[in-house]
Amino acid sequence: SEEKKKAKERLERLGASSELARELLDRANGNAEKAERLLRKLL
């Protein structure tokens, strides 16, 4: 979806690899905010 694509791009801008961004979104069930929080914990 367009929303998921935007979320993935945002995670990548924050420093996630394409693969990591995809994994985070999967774990967050597509929830962009939750995926971002997970990423911030990792960085």
Results as ranks from 00 to 15, higher is better:
Ser1Ala: 13
Ser1Met: 13
Ser1Cys: 12
Glu2Cys: 10
Glu2Asn: 12
Glu2Thr: 12
Glu2Leu: 13
Glu2Trp: 06
Glu2Ile: 13
Glu2Gln: 12
Glu2Tyr: 07
Glu3His: 12
Glu3Cys: 13
Glu3Gly: 11
Lys4Cys: 12
Lys4Phe: 15
Lys4His: 15
Lys4Asp: 14
Lys4Ile: 14
Lys5Leu: 12
Lys5Met: 12
Lys5Pro: 07
Lys6His: 11
Lys6Met: 11
Lys6Glu: 11
Lys6Tyr: 06
Lys6Gln: 12
Ala7Trp: 07
Ala7Phe: 08
Ala7Pro: 05
Ala7Val: 09
Ala7Ser: 08
Ala7Tyr: 07
Lys8Ala: 13
Lys8Glu: 13
Lys8Gln: 15
Lys8Asp: 04
Lys8Ser: 11
Lys8Arg: 15
Lys8Tyr: 15
Glu9Arg: 09
Glu9Val: 08
Glu9Tyr: 00
Glu9Asn: 08
Arg10Gly: 06
Arg10Val: 07
Arg10His: 10
Arg10Met: 10
Arg10Pro: 03
Leu11Tyr: 01
Leu11Gly: 00
Leu11Phe: 03
Leu11Arg: 00
Glu12Asp: 02
Glu12Gln: 11
Glu12Ala: 06
Glu12Asn: 04
Arg13His: 10
Arg13Cys: 12
Arg13Glu: 11
Arg13Ala: 14
Leu14Cys: 06
Leu14Arg: 04
Gly15Ile: 04
Gly15Met: 04
Gly15Thr: 03
Gly15Tyr: 01
Ala16Asp: 02
Ala16Cys: 14
Ala16Pro: 01
Ala16Phe: 02
Ala16Thr: 03
Ala16Trp: 00
Ser17Thr: 11
Ser17Pro: 06
Ser17Ala: 05
Ser17Phe: 04
Ser17Trp: 06
Ser18Lys: 11
Ser18Gly: 08
Glu19Gly: 07
Glu19Pro: 03
Glu19Ala: 10
Glu19Ser: 10
Glu19Tyr: 01
Glu19His: 11
Glu19Ile: 06
Glu19Thr: 06
Leu20Val: 07
Leu20His: 04
Leu20Ser: 02
Leu20Asn: 02
Leu20Trp: 02
Leu20Arg: 03
Ala21Met: 05
Ala21Pro: 01
Ala21Ser: 04
Ala21Gly: 01
Ala21His: 01
Arg22Leu: 15
Arg22His: 11
Arg22Cys: 13
Arg22Asp: 15
Glu23Ser: 08
Glu23His: 11
Glu23Thr: 09
Glu23Arg: 09
Glu23Leu: 11
Glu23Asp: 11
Leu24Phe: 03
Leu24Ile: 08
Leu24Thr: 01
Leu25Arg: 01
Asp26Gln: 11
Asp26Gly: 06
Asp26Tyr: 06
Asp26Thr: 06
Arg27Val: 10
Arg27Pro: 01
Arg27Gln: 13
Arg27Leu: 14
Ala28Trp: 04
Ala28Thr: 14
Ala28Phe: 15
Ala28Gly: 02
Ala28Ser: 10
Ala28Leu: 07
Asn29Lys: 10
Asn29Gly: 14
Asn29Trp: 07
Asn29Val: 05
Gly30Lys: 02
Gly30Gln: 07
Gly30Met: 05
Gly30Leu: 03
Asn31Cys: 05
Asn31Ser: 08
Asn31Met: 04
Asn31Glu: 06
Asn31Pro: 00
Asn31Lys: 04
Asn31Trp: 05
Asn31Gln: 05
Ala32Cys: 09
Ala32Phe: 15
Ala32Tyr: 15
Glu33Val: 10
Glu33Gly: 08
Glu33Lys: 13
Glu33Tyr: 06
Glu33Asn: 09
Glu33Thr: 10
Lys34Cys: 13
Lys34Ile: 15
Lys34Ala: 15
Lys34Arg: 12
Lys34Asn: 11
Lys34Gln: 15
Lys34Asp: 15
Lys34Gly: 09
Lys34Thr: 13
Ala35Gly: 01
Ala35Asp: 02
Ala35His: 01
Ala35Trp: 03
Ala35Leu: 07
Ala35Thr: 01
Glu36Gln: 03
Glu36Val: 08
Glu36Ala: 05
Glu36Ser: 03
Glu36Tyr: 02
Glu36Arg: 03
Arg37Glu: 15
Arg37Tyr: 06
Arg37Ser: 14
Arg37Trp: 07
Arg37Pro: 00
Leu38Asn: 07
Leu38Asp: 10
Leu38Gln: 09
Leu39Tyr: 07
Leu39Val: 00
Leu39Pro: 00
Arg40Met: 08
Arg40Lys: 14
Lys41His: 14
Lys41Arg: 11
Lys41Gly: 12
Lys41Phe: 09
Lys41Glu: 15
Leu42Asp: 04
Leu42Trp: 08
Leu42Ile: 14
Leu42Lys: 03
Leu42Pro: 00
Leu42His: 05
Leu42Gln: 05
Leu43Pro: 02
Leu43Ala: 05
Leu43Asn: 06
Leu43Trp: 06
